[in-house]
Simulated assay, not measured.
Amino acid sequence: MILYTPLSETDIFPHSQNEFSNRHCVNYQGKMLFVEEGKDGTYSLLQLLSTDPQDFLDEKYTPGTKIR
């Protein structure tokens, strides 16, 4: 089976459920984001989920950005 996807292998087949349980889809400032929750309560942006190309040019949606 061939799976064509922009996601990484570990996003599709996580090593354990605990590793994937701290990742969420959230609505932040009107944009859908895929984030990972940190131990200090902040979220780290993993992926911007948008169909608008202009959203990807905005620096505040760069992967790795910390969100409160």
Rank of each mutant, 00 (worst) to 15 (best):
M1Q: 13
M1G: 15
M1P: 09
I2R: 09
I2D: 10
Y4A: 12
T5P: 06
T5C: 05
T5K: 08
T5H: 07
P6K: 04
L7C: 05
L7K: 02
L7N: 03
L7Y: 07
L7R: 04
S8M: 15
S8G: 12
S8H: 10
E9W: 01
T10K: 11
D11F: 09
I12W: 03
F13W: 12
F13K: 12
F13P: 03
P14S: 13
H15F: 13
H15V: 11
Q17D: 13
Q17R: 13
Q17W: 14
Q17T: 13
Q17L: 15
Q17F: 15
N18K: 14
N18H: 12
N18P: 04
N18Y: 07
E19S: 14
F20T: 08
S21G: 10
N22F: 09
N22W: 06
R23Y: 06
R23C: 08
R23P: 02
H24M: 04
H24K: 10
H24Q: 04
H24S: 06
V26Q: 06
V26S: 03
V26T: 05
N27A: 01
N27G: 00
N27R: 01
Y28P: 05
Y28R: 09
Q29A: 13
Q29W: 01
G30R: 02
G30I: 04
K31R: 14
K31P: 03
M32P: 00
L33G: 01
L33I: 02
L33W: 01
F34N: 07
F34W: 14
V35H: 01
V35S: 03
E36H: 02
E37V: 11
E37Q: 12
E37A: 14
G38H: 10
K39Q: 07
K39R: 05
D40H: 14
D40M: 10
G41P: 12
G41E: 09
G41Y: 10
T42M: 15
Y43S: 05
S44W: 00
L45V: 02
L46C: 07
L48M: 08
L48F: 04
L48T: 10
L48G: 01
L49P: 04
L49N: 07
L49G: 00
T51P: 00
T51M: 13
T51S: 09
D52N: 13
P53Q: 06
P53M: 05
Q54M: 11
Q54T: 14
D55E: 00
D55F: 00
D55M: 00
L57I: 07
D58I: 08
D58Y: 03
K60S: 11
Y61A: 01
Y61M: 03
T62Y: 02
T62S: 06
T62N: 06
P63D: 05
P63T: 03
G64A: 01
I67D: 13
R68H: 10
R68N: 11
